[in-house]
Nucleic acid binder design. Structure first.
Lengths: 118, 118
DNA sequence: CAGACACTTGAACAACTGATGAACCAGCGC
DNA sequence: GCGCTGGTTCATCAGTTGTTCAAGTGTCTG
């Protein structure tokens, strides 16, 4: 390791003169963070349900058969990435997908995946 | 818990009669798995570079300043999700994005993230 | 075939993530 | 006010993930 100052080109191999990474690290990190939030089955199911209609935490908890705390944590993660929005109505807190772009992304991803699984 | 036969509706709150989760668990799991692969900065940078042109492992390692093993592992993850394809040419192994759909997804995500970070 | 180069795989270890119960806010009804 | 229900946050704990070194595979060259 270390050293590596004189890196010669191999026969039929040009060294990568240009560095193709053009987006700022912050941007890539941000995008990765969103993908990470989407990269969990339970959270994806939440989004899938919210893509149909607005639902409150109790509903989502009941549908998935899990505790309020668990669902709330998942929603927290999704909200931190700007994927869902919340709204108060009396004692209930209703969640929805943040915008149509998110809805399209979810639908697109699931349809694409359903083709591959067959 | 358990039982839950007599679930009464709250005042202004209809219970979710229909279960909006329509895709098979396998499909959701598959989609989540792809997102999980995308949800890592280092892997996303790899994809970003591969979106520009085909590169071999050594190139990617040199560009990111990391070991061959590290890069190879990352590519392995991406390949397991069908995001990249590989091709042998002599001693080198060249990687590319699997298809145009992946390329579009990467570009789309990064551009969207760059708007939000501003 | 031996030896170098380009990569891959396996295992071990550190870092992170998600689930869960307890404690803690926020409305509503009594 | 008090209790009750709906949600959130905190802290802990188990499971997962990513990185790294070492050893293995494959390919070209001498």
């Amino acid at each position: 390791m270390s050293g590596a100052s004189g890196k010669e080109v191999c026969d039929a191999h040009e060294s990568p003169s240009e560095d193709p990474a053009r987006f700022h690290p912050d941007v890539v990190e941000r995008a990765a963070s969103v993908f990470r939030a989407l990269g969990d089955t339970a959270r994806l199911v939440l989004l899938e349900r919210l893509a149909v209609r607005e639902l409150c935490v109790s509903d989502l908890a009941e549908l998935s058969g899990e505790g309020l705390s668990t669902v709330s944590q998942r929603l927290r993660t999704l909200r931190a990435e700007g994927l869902v929005r919340r709204r108060r109505s009396g004692k209930h807190v209703y969640y929805t997908l943040a915008d149509d772009h998110v809805a399209g992304l979810i639908r697109n991803a699931l349809e694409h995946a359903s083709e591959e699984v067959g």
